[in-house]
Simulated scan of single mutants.
Amino acid sequence: MTRVTLIPGDGIGPEVAFAAKEVVDATGVKIEWDIVNAGADTYKKTGSFIPKTLLESISKNRVVLKGPITTPIGKGFKSINVTLRQKFDTYANIRPLKSMPGTKGRFDNVDLVVFRENTEGLYAGIEHKINEDVTEAIKVITKKGSIRIVEEAFKYAKEQNRKKVTAVHKANIMKITDGLFLDCAKSVAKKYPDIEYEEKIVDNMCMQLVMYPEKYDILVMPNLYGDILSDLASGLVGGLGLVPGANIGSDIGIFEAVHGSAPDIAGKSLANPIACIMSSAMMLDYIDEKQAANRIRKAVWTVLEEGKWKTKDLGGNATTEEITNAICKKP
């Protein structure tokens, strides 16, 4: 039996996280769930956004399924997501983006994976106030960080029989920082001669994705670009409610939907749980329960294809519970 830390989160977090738990339990995989929360609601109750009990649970279990968590904007609090990624060195953020039936996706042929460096770049959290009129953020790019995220992208490409890796950068302007990232990407690419390698400047990459997404396979990039491009690509396949994510370190995996906590619809049973459910499938892959993971993906695909149970964001009227139950009932 695998012990998994479950973080319900804030806003719609508990609704989608427990929906994912229900679907995982329906597969028959034996999971012992250690439920410990974090975020704004936890802060109100305990005075801490990330309680010690949660850090202890993650340190012990090394596998986490996480609902979205609220971090106040512009209030001086460091992002909880960033804190967890840096604390546990989950350096590879992996976001698969694939066209699915019965959605509002603008394309039906998107099948790409974004590999985002997860611990440094402009999200390193090094900011300063110079004076009342000037602020400063420091972008950190390291050889170690760059090499290991590009290695993950190429390793995944090889394991999944993918054909191409595209390194995304702005080295034409940020010649030192993004220049280092690009140098590292080129050095790693030389070890994988059977996989096509190319480079795209990030602004051009945005245009390419909204015009020709079918031309791309694996995208690898520094932190900020990955955050932006994965959301852009989410729009191509029907929205954030469909896109899963994984944060992977050397011996730890934290799995979460790409979307935020959406407090405006919390408690109304309007939330689309598919992104979190698909994240739980990635978690099952990680713990070598691949058959169960594929059953979940097939069930989600079938429910969307049938079109009977779709949440409001997908053009339907189904509740969170209804679409979750429909997925659970599929063989």
Rank of each mutant, 00 (worst) to 15 (best):
M283A: 03
I287T: 09
I277N: 00
N294E: 15
D288L: 13
A281Q: 03
M278Q: 08
E289M: 08
K290Y: 09
P263I: 12
A293P: 03
E289N: 10
Q291F: 13
M283E: 00
Q291C: 11
G267I: 15
N272Y: 02
S269K: 15
S261E: 05
R295F: 05
E289Y: 15
D285Q: 10
N294M: 13
A271R: 01
I274Q: 00
G267L: 10
S280T: 07
N294I: 09
A292C: 04
D288H: 14
D285R: 08
I265M: 09
M278E: 02
A271G: 10
Q291S: 14
A281W: 02
K268C: 08
S269V: 10
D264I: 12
N272A: 04
I277T: 03
P263S: 15
P263L: 12
I265W: 09
L284N: 02
I274M: 01
D264V: 08
Y286R: 11
L270C: 04
I265G: 05
I277C: 01
A266T: 12
E289I: 09
I265E: 03
R295V: 09
A293Y: 04
M278F: 02
P263C: 15
C276H: 01
K290F: 09
S279M: 07
A266G: 08
E289G: 06
L270A: 02
A292D: 00
C276N: 09
S269D: 14
M282H: 01
D285S: 08
I287L: 08
A293I: 06
S280R: 03
I274L: 11
L284R: 05
A293V: 12
P263W: 11
C276S: 13
G267A: 11
I287N: 03
I277S: 00
D288S: 15
S269M: 10
G267S: 15
I277F: 01
M283P: 01
R295I: 13
M278P: 00
A262W: 03
G267M: 11
E289H: 13
K290V: 14
S261I: 15
A271I: 02
N294A: 12
Q291I: 14
S279N: 06
E289T: 06
Y286I: 12
A293N: 04
P273N: 07
I274R: 00
K290T: 15
I274W: 00
K290C: 10
D288A: 14
A262T: 11
P263M: 11
A275T: 05
A281N: 03
A293T: 05
G267E: 07
C276G: 04
A292L: 10
L270D: 00
A262R: 04
A271T: 02
M282S: 02
I277Y: 00
A293Q: 04
D285L: 06
Q291D: 14
E289C: 09
P263E: 08
K290I: 13
G267R: 11
A292Y: 04
